[in-house]
């Protein structure tokens, strides 16, 4: 399943297979990252996200298939000068000051942003003279974000960008990412925070065991899972409701009937017909998180 769009892709994995010994990490994966859009790659631990990112960055070679980064090989230095990278697993040297880290990373790029501007965008103005190892986890993430954006990237890889950030700092990072995207930057986001994908991503790809099991806009992916949650106090039994069309599951918890349904209107209509005394009716649209949990469970 490939993300197809008339927009040119900034990076793509085309039928990529990657094995580590007897383990197949990616199994014929197709993934496209569109320009001027945020693509979120979601998956449980071990689903193959890190391997996919490693291949796109040229850190590993595929056993089969093709990897394209900005229309070229990720191994080419000129190509990588157009990308920005923030890896969750990369710890910067503790003894270096923030300004030293930004200066050395900026030197890799043709037209880097000024130090003051990078610091302002990433929210690290106050810690430029401090050593990386003496910063809080949240401040360290911001420094890593600063290094990712300092080269005016056309394609930005963000791996868990807001882990450890407070609500305000997270919103600030999101705002910078949106501004970059408005200017045409493509973003590949891997995150455990599904609300982050919901807030930022134009497109979502759900990876399970090295294969994409769902892809599309956030709404489309959400619709591929359970899309409505219904709760009410009623005398109708869960067993009876479970047999109705459009009902995924029905359980009784704390005296309330809880229904997961793919279409809420028909189920609610039938509930009211079957029990006019029904009270405390709630209908909620299921989030990306619920759809994600369901997909990963079904495909595990």
């Amino acid at each position: 399943m490939m993300i197809r769009s008339p927009m040119p892709v900034a990076a793509a994995l085309d039928g990529v297979v990657k094995r580590y010994g007897s383990t197949t990490a990616l199994d014929g994966l197709h993934l496209g990252i569109e320009r001027a859009k945020v693509t979120a790659l979601l998956g449980a631990n071990g689903a193959g996200k890190t391997t996919a990112v490693s291949l796109l960055l040229g850190l590993a070679e595929p056993d089969a298939g093709r990897v394209s980064l900005l229309g070229d090989s990720p191994r080419r230095l000129e190509t990588r000068r157009r990308i920005g990278v923030m890896l969750q697993a990369a710890a910067l040297p503790d003894t270096l000051q923030v300004r030293e880290l930004i200066a050395v990373t900026s030197s890799y790029y043709v037209r880097p942003l000024r130090l003051a501007e990078v610091a302002r965008l990433a929210g690290v103005e106050d810690v430029l003279g401090r050593r990386y190892g003496r910063l809080s986890g949240g401040q360290q993430r911001r420094v890593q974000f600063a290094l990712a954006i300092c080269g005016r990237p056309e394609l930005l890889f963000l791996d868990e960008p807001t882990t450890g950030l407070d609500v305000e700092a997270r919103a600030a990072v999101w705002s910078v990412v949106r501004a970059l995207v408005d200017q045409g930057c493509a973003v590949l986001l891997t995150t455990h925070y599904l609300e982050e994908a919901e807030a930022l991503a134009h497109r979502v790809a759900v990876l399970v065991r090295g294969r994409i099991v769902a892809e599309g806009t956030v709404d489309e992916v959400r619709a591929q899972g359970v899309c409505r949650r219904i709760r009410c106090v009623t005398r109708i039994s869960a067993e009876e409701v479970r047999a109705w069309p459009d009902v995924g599951s029905a359980t009784r918890e704390d005296g309330r009937l809880q229904i997961e349904a793919t279409a809420s209107e028909s189920v609610v209509r039938r509930l009211l017909e079957a029990d006019p005394q029904l009270t405390e009716l709630e209908v909620r649209r299921a989030g990306l998180a619920e759809a994600f949990v369901q997909m990963t469970r079904e495909n595990a």
């Binding site: 050395v104 030197s107 890799y108 043709v110 880097p112 942003l113 000024r114 302002r120």
Partner: peptide, 25 residues
């Protein structure tokens, strides 16, 4: 942290990457 405006001027060494500068840093 404000929004990215992309209006900053490139620094003096812009226009190419200096290998010597990278090695020095």
């Amino acid at each position: 942290m404000d929004s990215f405006d992309g209006t900053s001027k490139p620094p003096a060494f812009a226009g190419g990457v200096s290998m010597l500068r990278i090695l020095w840093l």
